[in-house]
Design a protein around this nucleic acid. Structure first.
Lengths: 349, 349
DNA sequence: TTGTAGGCGTTATCAC
DNA sequence: GTGATAACGCCTACAA
């Protein structure tokens, strides 16, 4: 817009050379206090800020990071991102956000593939990239995607939040996807439930598979078995929980599960709604607990019992990992969170 | 990270001058087809992308826009942002997101003021700024804030979503804040309600004042009056709806409103929760309708009756306005949306 | 402590 | 159609 003022202008007005101005800009100690003060005053007076373009040319850094995630309207990603942005900002980085999945309600992916986003991000000359979700969460990742990631990582440090991926060289903030499922199972068993089900989560996505696996395994460890038709993956949102529960309720009434683990709070809310529409009460008829707490679940009717996965912590660690990678470190962080089971009403305890 | 390849490298490898390469980069017609193809091939081969820094130096453009909003975990802002980012991307702009309010649950503002953010955004050399909310929504905006905005707008086009502000020169995508409230009032009256209340919304915020005003006025127009103690602002989230309703229920039972308008779905959900905790049913004891629909309100118990404010449309218009401002236009867009009342269960219809 | 000058990777303006 | 070359605004040796 308006022609910005430049460093040489400041230099001229202060009666010094550009290098001296540059020195005060970069807090170099070797500037006489008098000149420093004068220069600072002139800078303030003219509201001067150095050009990031010129700086970028010489330092090759934009002080920006790129964050790529599928859906910012998903509370999980929103709170993760909030933490990421806040922490990045404190560390001097601004955040470019790329939302790869548009128009969620129509289940319509955008025309652009995530690979396209990688290209755009690369062009944006960010100092690092954080991949919070998307294709990366799939059980079966197309090779082209991994190659694109590697290719990007060759230029810019890329940190993935989730699990290590075969053949992918990017850094990873590893988290134990299945953590906490066992504690829900224990809780339900302790409450006397014999038939437990699991709903929600998209099939073919790592966290779904991991949690369902953990669910089955924990039941086995306790000498019981999960019934396959009581395990109904669908997706991560309320309509999906609704649909899964509807499907479940079509089963013969006498073998219905008495307790259900939902992928997250939205799924739980959808499921509870489906019960209600069949004239069933939660937890009286079927108890429900969720694996991932979202804000406001404590205001639902009934209040949802769920796992607090400490996502804020996850966000901070991811930024930490990225920044240390930007600064040349190769070390990987593994985080060991222990989700906390928050018992409210929906589990019937 | 890895030393990027430059335009002159490409030129050398293609056996042409940098100008020619630059021409094919910018789709200039005056390049012989043979050379063009060869150059393009070499570019692809080396995965070359021009430096945004160098480009920025000469064009003074980053193809980035800055978006500033208080809380991305608020579904209203999340869906607005999603639309903004998607549309911006289609227009060739990436989006820097600044979330000014951190740690919502503790009601703790970040240490940085929004003015600080303006400074940072200015330093980031974005091509334009979108202000989706924050101090800008206040009834009584500190002069320093307006000055900071004007100052920023002097350098970069700034578009504000909301209402025109006295003394502020920024562009505005004006929307009628109170739209739709009347239709809820009409609906309730038609259902036979005599005592209607209003809860939620932070006092001193434009949209709160506007909606409460519209509420009162519409009642007056119908020959009734709103009772002051039935109007309880608080804030925009579920806990606030809960608290407001709790407060309301402390009033003498025989003068309690029979219907309540909530600021948005979260407030409504909190309020319904508070009723439940007192053994009251919605809509049987008190009917509720909300002024702003959020995703999943149709899965709440009861399903929330609310207004669809067409926020997606708002997002697109804001980006459109910003881009046209970046391209030198001064014209302001006024959008005239008519919110649609979606009747579900909570209103008792 | 201070100033001078070269270079960072593009685009634009000229000539040719 | 093509190629030099001068900006663009900053940083950083190097010199003084």
């Amino acid at each position: 817009m308006k022609n910005k003022i430049t460093i040489s202008e400041i230099a001229r007005k202060s009666g010094v050379s550009v290098s001296t101005v540059s020195r005060v800009l970069n807090n170099s100690p070797s500037v006489s206090p008098g000149k420093r003060e004068k220069i600072q005053q002139i800078i303030a007076e003219h509201n001067y800020t150095p050009s990031v373009f010129a700086r970028g040319m010489v330092n090759h850094t934009s002080q920006n990071i790129g964050v790529i995630l599928p859906d910012i309207t998903n509370p999980y990603f929103a709170s993760l991102f909030m933490e990421v942005q806040s922490f990045a900002m404190q560390s001097g980085y601004a955040t470019l956000l790329f939302n790869t999945m548009f128009v969620r309600n129509r289940k319509q992916q955008s025309k652009m593939s995530e690979e396209d986003y990688f290209r755009i991000i690369q062009e944006k000359q960010v100092d690092g990239v954080l991949v919070l979700g998307g294709h990366i969460d799939k059980e079966d990742i197309p090779d082209s995607y991994i190659q694109a990631l590697n290719q990007l990582h060759r230029q810019i440090p890329v940190v993935i939040v989730g699990t290590r991926i075969e053949g992918c060289n990017c850094l990873v903030v590893e988290r134990d996807l299945k953590q906490g499922v066992a504690s829900i199972v224990h809780h339900f068993i302790a409450l006397g439930h014999e038939r437990i089900g699991f709903i929600g989560g998209e099939p073919g996505i790592r966290i779904t598979t991991a949690r369902i696996e953990a669910f089955k395994q924990e039941l086995r460890a306790l000498g019981r078995t999960a019934l396959d038709n009581h395990i109904i993956p669908s997706d991560y949102y309320a309509p999906d929980g609704y649909e899964a529960m509807r499907q479940l309720l079509d089963e013969p009434q006498d073998t219905l599960p008495t307790a259900i683990i939902a992928m997250n709070d939205m799924v739980a809310i959808g499921a509870i709604r489906a019960m209600k529409d069949r004239g069933l009460q939660c937890p009286e008829h079927i108890a429900i607990a969720s694996c991932d707490q979202f804000p406001q679940s404590e205001y639902a009717i009934p209040r949802i019992t769920s796992l607090d996965q400490h996502n804020e912590y996850l966000g901070r660690m991811a930024v930490l990992q990225l920044i240390s990678a930007i600064n040349g470190s190769e070390e990987m962080i593994r985080i060991n969170h222990t989700p906390r089971l928050i018992i409210r009403e929906s589990c019937g305890a």
